[in-house]
Design a protein around this nucleic acid. Structure first.
Lengths: 224, 224
DNA sequence: AAGTGGTCTAGACCACCTT
DNA sequence: AGGTGGTCTAGACCACTTA
C-alpha cells in the first residue's frame, strides 16, 4: 500500500481529492441520484472550494464510470437501469470466475486463513441486519480472493463503477432470504478454495454472482 | 452516434479534447514511451495551449488507464511489462468470450454480412504488410462482434487502456506466421457465428486471444 | 437576446526534491 | 534554501439553452 495513493479509502491531500471522495459518498448515499445534473458552481459552493478542483474531481469520477461529462454541457450522474445492473454483474461474473480460477492454483495457507477470517466477520455482520456494514464485509471478502488471483487490472475493472450498484443496493436492500443464502454461498466458495477444486470454485463463484444479480433485479422490479 | 461525443475518432471541440487525442496518438506512436514523465509545461508548450487543458486531458487519460498521476508529483506513462500484457489479454479473453457467447444467440443476417465484410477487408489489408492498418482492421472486426454482444460496459472495458498494447504491437510487430494465423482464426470465428455454435464460438475466440497474447509476448521476449 | 454554466488564461501558492 | 512543477483562485470568454 503506497503512501502517495489518493485512493478511495485513504486520506486525500488535495482539494480535488477531498471533493472526489465527498462526491463518491454522496452518490453512494443517494444524495446525488442517477440522472441528476451536477454543476460546478453548486458543488464548489457546497464544499467551499473553487470550481477547478471540482472539475478535476468530476473528470476523475467520469473515468471511474460514475458520471458522464459532455463538452459545454456539464456532468450528470450515470443513470443505472436494470440492463446496466445486469451488464455489470455479467462482467463481474466472468472476471471473478477468472480470478478465482487463478487463485485456486496458488492460494497459500495463510491466505486461506485470511479468507476464513473475512468470512467469519461477514457472518457476524450478517446477524446484525446492518446492510451498509454487510455490503462492506462482502466487498472485503471478495477483494481478498480477487487479489490472490493476481491480476491487478482485472481487480480494478471489477470495482470500477461499482459504487453505482452499491448505491442501488443500499436503496433497495436485500431480499428476505438473500443474506442467509450469501452466507452459505460464501461457505461453498471457501470450501472449494480449500479443496483447490478449480471447476467447483469457478462455478460456485459464477452462481453466487448470478444469485446476487437476480436478487437485486427482483428488488428493483418489485419497487417499480 | 451522438454528435456531442468527444470520443477517440471524432473531432474534438475543446482544447483539452484535442490535447487528449494528440497525447493518445503520441503514446500509440511511441513518441511518449512507457515510464516516461509527462509535465504540464512541456505538453502545453508543445501544443500551444495553457496548462489547464493539458491537466484535464491527463486526468481523462488516467481514467482510461494510459498513465498514472499522483498528487504533487505529476503524470507518467503507464509502464507495460510482460505481466501487464498477459493480464490485459486475460481480461480481453474472458470478456470477448462472454460477448461472442451472447452475440451468437442474437446475431442477425445483416450483422453476419457486416462481419464478413470486415473480415474481407482484414484479409485484404493482411496482404499489404501495413501493420498499423492491420491493427485497425483487426480492431474493427472484433468491435463489430463485441457490439452485437450487447453489453456496452464490457465493450468499453475491453478497449480501455488497450492503446498501450497497440503501442507495443506497433513497436514489436507481428511474428512471422502470425498474420496468416489471424486470418484463419478469424474465419473460424465467422464460421462459428454463422453456425450459431455457442461453445465453438467461445472456445475459438478464447484460443484466438491466447494466440495473440503468446505471439506478442514472444516478440517482446525475443527483443529483450 | 439574455442567462446559465462550462472552458480557458494568467498568476499566486505551496508541496516535493534537489544542493 | 532554492528550483521545479503541480495545485488552486479569480475572472474573462464563449458555447449552449432558455424565451
Amino acid at each position: 500500500m503506497k503512501k502517495s495513493d489518493a485512493g478511495a479509502g485513504e486520506q486525500a491531500v488535495t482539494s480535488s481529492g477531498r471533493v472526489k471522495d465527498l462526491l463518491r459518498q454522496d452518490i453512494l448515499r443517494g444524495v446525488l441520484k442517477p440522472n441528476q445534473r451536477v454543476t460546478l458552481a453548486d458543488v464548489a459552493a457546497r464544499y467551499g472550494v473553487g470550481q477547478m478542483p471540482v472539475r478535476h474531481a468530476l473528470l476523475q469520477l467520469e473515468g471511474e464510470g460514475l458520471l458522464e461529462i459532455s463538452a459545454h454541457k456539464g456532468a450528470t450522474i450515470r443513470r443505472a437501469d436494470a440492463k446496466f445492473v445486469y451488464d455489470m454483474y455479467e462482467i463481474r461474473r466472468v472476471l471473478e470466475a477468472m480470478l478465482i480460477g487463478s487463485a485456486v492454483k496458488v492460494v497459500r495457507a495463510d491466505e486461506l486463513a485470511a479468507i476464513r477470517k473475512a468470512q467469519d466477520h461477514f457472518e457476524a455482520v450478517a446477524t446484525t441486519g446492518n446492510e451498509a456494514a454487510l455490503l462492506k464485509a462482502n466487498t472485503d471478502f471478495h477483494n481478498i480472493i480477487n487479489r490472490i488471483g493476481n491480476n491487478p487490472e482485472a481487480t480494478r475493472y471489477i470495482n470500477r463503477g461499482w459504487d453505482l450498484i452499491h448505491a442501488m443496493r443500499l436503496q433497495f436492500g436485500f431480499g428476505r432470504s438473500r443474506v442467509a443464502a450469501m452466507v452459505s454461498e460464501h461457505r461453498s466458495i471457501v470450501a472449494a478454495l480449500e479443496a483447490r477444486d478449480h471447476d467447483r470454485a469457478t462455478s460456485v463463484a459464477e452462481e453466487h454472482c448470478r444469485a446476487a444479480r437476480d436478487d437485486l433485479l427482483a428488488r428493483i422490479a418489485s419497487v417499480g
